[in-house]
Amino acid sequence: MSANPQVERLEAAGPSPAATGESPVWRVAEQALYWVDIPAKKIVRGSLATGQRTEWLLPEQVACIAFDHAGTVLAGCETGLFGVTLADVSKAASGEPLTASLRKLAAPEFPHGGMRFNDGRCDRQGRFWAGTMVMDMAAAIPGGALYRFDEKGVLSAPVVDSLITQNGLGWSPDGTTMYLSDSHPLRRLIWAFDYDVETAEPRNRRVFADLHHYSGRPDGAAVDADGCYWICANDAGLLLRFTPQGKLDRQIPVPAVKPAMCAFGGRDLDTLFVTSIRPANGASEHDGHVFALRPGVSGLPEPEFAGQL
């Protein structure tokens, strides 16, 4: 296993950097990577086979996405969760974003103004989990919460509350451990929970890793086939891998100072894709781009939403 695999910019992501690149999802059926640019209100697709980049423009900020079996997108946005039907890729004109039709599925009661959804994905059984945050991170308001949206279309009450910047969702390969982070500079914590795959209830919350002892802030994550947890160390330009026991066993530098979220993909699910955020000041030529590396381990297919959107 290479300690420092080659990290390359993903050509299929195109030349335009994202302001906040997040939520990479590998679609096995298409052999393509999807991700979002939150403030640009865009869902983006990169085809590895053709190198084609396609964008869809939404009417509000979109932070996290998953797909159902039919290819409809389940998106966590500013005002709630939406079912999003993307206009066909074949209709794309050169350089022009495509349209998307949205249907609101559910919305929590936001306790503060200026909030939106942030990190989200499906558990191994296809239930969608996503958290909320106050967009003004400088205010450090712990008004965020984690929610579950099940296959029947029911949005739960807050399952975990008092979060400042919810992030880092992931599940062990057998689905019995759930991971969650708070990436705010005042928190920098990753938690693990025992997860009941039948009832979808997380219990026994404990600190899995405290990034005050390492570098960066714990942003988005992925779990590999060995059960190890990969976290993007935002502000440190690193990927960190923790064993299921919470031991840091690898760290890989990436060209962007703010890696945001990672996802396994590629034909053999042995490529790790990394989205990044472009700083407002002092950005390098690499910040805001998508990167790819082969870390010597494979991931698991991203679960699809079990309901019908």
Rank of each mutant, 00 (worst) to 15 (best):
G266D: 10
Y195E: 14
G246W: 01
S183T: 15
G83Q: 10
F273C: 09
A260P: 06
W230P: 01
F117M: 10
V7T: 05
N167T: 08
A63H: 03
P142V: 12
A263V: 15
E302H: 14
M115V: 13
R187F: 07
Y147Q: 00
L169C: 09
G51Q: 02
T72E: 08
N118F: 05
A292K: 08
G21D: 12
E151I: 11
A200L: 09
D270G: 15
N234A: 15
G131K: 04
K104L: 10
R267V: 12
H286C: 14
L239N: 08
L33Y: 08
V73Y: 10
F67L: 11
L240S: 04
D119E: 13
P17V: 05
V154T: 15
F149K: 09
K41I: 03
V223L: 00
N118D: 13
M1C: 10
Q308W: 02
G126E: 01
R116I: 10
R206A: 07
L180P: 08
H289N: 07
A236D: 10
D194G: 03
E285Y: 00
N204I: 03
D119A: 04
E198Q: 13
A70T: 10
L58K: 04
D136S: 01
L189C: 05
R53Y: 00
S183V: 03
D123I: 02
Q251C: 12
H212M: 11
K41M: 09
V274E: 06
Q31W: 02
A263P: 02
R217K: 14
A138H: 14
T20G: 08
A222F: 10
P303G: 04
I190P: 04
T177E: 01
P108L: 08
H184K: 09
S47Y: 05
Y214M: 06
D226K: 00
D174P: 11
E109Q: 12
L272M: 14
G14M: 04
L48F: 14
M135Y: 12
S276G: 01
N281S: 13
G307V: 12
Y195Q: 11
K104A: 11
R148V: 06
L81S: 11
P185S: 09
R250Y: 00
F149W: 09
T132V: 01
P111E: 01
R187D: 06
N234P: 00
V160A: 11
L269G: 14
I164F: 04
R127M: 10
Y195P: 12
S172V: 01
L81M: 08
V89D: 13
L309M: 12
P142Y: 01
N167L: 08
A145W: 11
D287Y: 10
E78R: 10
S181R: 03
A13P: 12
S298M: 05
S94T: 15
G216C: 06
G299N: 03
D119H: 06
S215A: 15
T271V: 14
L86A: 02
S215P: 09
P111F: 01
G143L: 03
G71E: 10
A32P: 03
Q31V: 02
K42L: 13
T165S: 15
A233E: 14
F242W: 01
C122D: 07
I190C: 08
Q52A: 14
V207S: 02
I231S: 13
C77H: 06
